Computed example of a mutant assay.
Amino acid sequence: MKTLKIGVMLLALLLAAMIMVPMVSAAETSSTSTQMVKVDPKTDTLGFVAVDVITIDPAVKNATPYYQILVLNDEGKQNLLNNIDSASSVVASDSMFTTEAKTSMKASLTNLWKKYPVIYETKKGGSGYPTYGGTITTIRFAPDIKGPHLTDQENLVLNNTQTMLNEAYTQKQANAITPMWATDPTHKRISYWAAYKESFPQPDTVASASMEPDSWYDSIPDPFAALVHSWYHYYDPALAKGGAPGQTLAWVTQAKSYYNSKDYTNAAINLGWASHFLEDVGNPMHTGKESDQISNPWVHSKYEGYVGKWWSTSTNGAASFEDIVKNNNNYYGYSDWSQGTMNLASYSHGYVDTIYTKVYNKGLNWDLTRDTSIDAITQNLIQATAQYTNGLALYARSG
């Protein structure tokens, strides 16, 4: 009898253990995602830092396709003149790079800056996006300059200046612009942490797969590869053009389907692909200023190189870009991730003039030294991109 009682007790304990173990496992599995907090992207300000935003008056943009040279600050003007001095070509017969041609070009630029002066009007920004309490600086022509349009000869000077810089840039670079974030580590780390924090299976696979879309078009000959690549990794909300929203939606839908059928490896791969296209539009260079970037590809490249170089390094007590992603437990939730991608692009697009202008002022020979104003805007972009990607991973796992 005693033996029977002991057996019954052991059986009861075993049954209890069988019941309790799954309950504990379920709690552990979901503990990461239950710590995640859904926030409204329209009102979210927590963790975002004050930034100084630049806007360029439409009258300046309409005056010339090369308006970026006109809006340079004093540092930017000097850097441009220095870039002209240091520019060289492997083509010995290229007359643009002679000392005489450079002297003439610099004199013409100086005259244009005197003829079309710009002013900088700064005011306090609001407490939310895009400044989060920082400032907005509008660059416009001086009051006595009334709606100018540069002459053909003046535009030729600016065109020749950009041509010289781009040829010099091409000589220095092994590869031309690739339309992506500084892929390693940016895509990898944002994708990894989103999957990890949302309890998505195989976060390392998600991270690895997030790198792959940039090589999908390698077999297509240029310039078609660059055109196809740019289209699918881009969305301009001002034009409502670009393929990134459709790509994000297509691959996250596949990820969700694989997850539901318990094929976790393919689910992770497809989530990584979806994450890539979403994260791309978190970079302002993927959301506008198309003609400017064609004319000045080095600006795009310099900015991405900057983010990649300083990804894991904090400065002045501020968190590193990696820490911003790792420690962010907020997410934006969408049932339509085409719309989610467009919304992130709209957020990012609000900084495109600022980032482009700040990098252009640094000049072609910028050695990527730290810049606190570029850091602050990048921190906000990285945080927003991470919160969108967190939501994407949760959607692929649970809808």
Score class of each variant (00 low, 15 high):
residue 6 I to L: 15
residue 9 M to S: 07
residue 12 A to Y: 15
residue 13 L to Y: 04
residue 23 M to T: 15
residue 25 S to N: 15
residue 28 E to S: 11
residue 33 S to W: 14
residue 34 T to R: 10
residue 37 V to N: 13
residue 38 K to C: 01
residue 72 L to T: 01
residue 95 S to N: 06
residue 98 T to D: 09
residue 101 A to C: 12
residue 103 T to W: 07
residue 107 A to M: 06
residue 109 L to M: 07
residue 121 E to P: 01
residue 121 E to R: 15
residue 125 G to R: 09
residue 129 Y to H: 09
residue 140 R to C: 10
residue 140 R to W: 13
residue 143 P to K: 15
residue 145 I to W: 02
residue 145 I to N: 01
residue 154 E to L: 12
residue 161 T to V: 14
residue 163 T to P: 03
residue 167 E to G: 05
residue 177 I to K: 14
residue 184 D to H: 08
residue 185 P to Q: 12
residue 193 W to H: 08
residue 203 P to H: 13
residue 214 D to W: 01
residue 231 W to K: 07
residue 233 H to Q: 04
residue 237 P to E: 02
residue 240 A to F: 06
residue 241 K to H: 02
residue 244 A to E: 00
residue 252 V to D: 04
residue 258 Y to I: 03
residue 264 Y to A: 02
residue 278 L to I: 01
residue 282 G to T: 12
residue 282 G to S: 12
residue 291 S to W: 13
residue 292 D to W: 08
residue 298 W to N: 00
residue 298 W to D: 02
residue 300 H to N: 10
residue 307 V to S: 05
residue 314 S to N: 14
residue 315 T to E: 09
residue 319 A to D: 05
residue 320 S to E: 01
residue 324 I to P: 05
residue 326 K to R: 15
residue 332 Y to L: 09
residue 348 S to W: 02
residue 350 G to E: 02
residue 358 K to W: 00
residue 358 K to P: 00
residue 362 K to Q: 08
residue 364 L to S: 06
residue 364 L to G: 05
residue 369 T to N: 12
residue 371 D to P: 00
residue 379 Q to H: 12
residue 382 I to H: 03
residue 393 A to G: 13
